[in-house]
Design a protein around this nucleic acid. Structure first.
Lengths: 151, 151
DNA sequence: TTTAAGAATGGGAATCATTCTCATTTAATG
DNA sequence: CATTAAATGAGAATGATTCCCATTCTTAAA
């Protein structure tokens, strides 16, 4: 899997993280597929050349540096996604039959309303609300069958 | 902890579930505190007289019967909440410093917009969206923590 | 370039939540 | 109260994540 590693190296440097093989691999992979990936996805793609414990540490580091975000799917699997500057604020739609995750943007109007609502709710509860997530769960017409793992 | 068990017994009967001590205890407890509770909360309140495996089974049963709902807090802890008919559709606000969970209603107008938006998104992605969740995360003072820990 | 010091890694053990197994107990029915 | 299926308790098994530590790699300075 020959990948261009410049993207990853630059990103790491920009965030003051040392450039190591596992970090570069993970970032390049996330960039290549440009979709949320699970621990297992990444392990498989690396052909298990990265230690599992290292992968967790790498994701924690990238997450703290705000290079990626992590969240969990309805079946509690950890998913990781790049957090580009250009990538706009979005939410997730899970298909529980084909097990895909789709990025969804709500659009300015609704996001604006939500923001306003959130600050009102924050005041009411005396809580500084830093984040919110909106997730949707559904199923496509692939009746209950899991799709073969995609590349 | 003397509790009135009529509520629980009636509820179980209504849903065709057998009336057993662990089920009655859990439902009475949820009713008494009327707030989302974790596995540990319930175990502590029961003074560990309920077996842990039983508690998981009871929650699974109650959940399938739609007597309760389960969801997880940002630190991946399972939370359980009663699902009354009267209890209106609501969302959750997590305070990550005091670790409380608040029920929040968005109000008719916004919920309506969201519903409309959801059906549009569903069409776009050819997915039948059955559920959605909207969650807010904040803190009442300033200490936060992520699910991926790194010291 | 070489090197020293700190940072990151690999591998495996430890931990934690959840599920499973099975022998025993209990609830519902008549 | 006897029968039968369902539920429970206890602990083992599983699976995900974190921890520990000896070894290796990165970086920055010499």
């Amino acid at each position: 899997m020959a990948m261009n590693t410049d993207y990853a190296r630059t990103l790491l440097k920009q965030h003051g993280l040392t450039i190591t093989e596992p970090r570069v691999f993970v970032l390049s992979l996330l960039r290549k597929f440009d979709t949320p990936m699970s621990i297992n996805d990444i392990m498989e793609k690396s052909k298990h050349t990265i230690a599992l414990s290292t992968l967790y540490r790498v994701l924690a580091d990238l997450s703290h540096a705000k290079i990626v975000t992590t969240f969990s799917s309805p079946n509690q699997k950890l998913l990781v996604e790049l957090l580009d500057e250009e990538r706009e604020h979005h939410h997730h739609l899970y298909c529980e039959s084909c097990e895909k995750v789709f990025d969804v943007s709500l659009g300015e109007e609704l996001e604006g309303m939500i923001e306003k609502l959130i600050s009102k709710i924050g005041e009411t509860h005396q809580i500084d609300i830093q984040e919110h997530s909106f997730e949707m769960y559904g199923s496509c017409n692939n009746t209950g069958q899991h799709s073969l793992r995609r590349n």
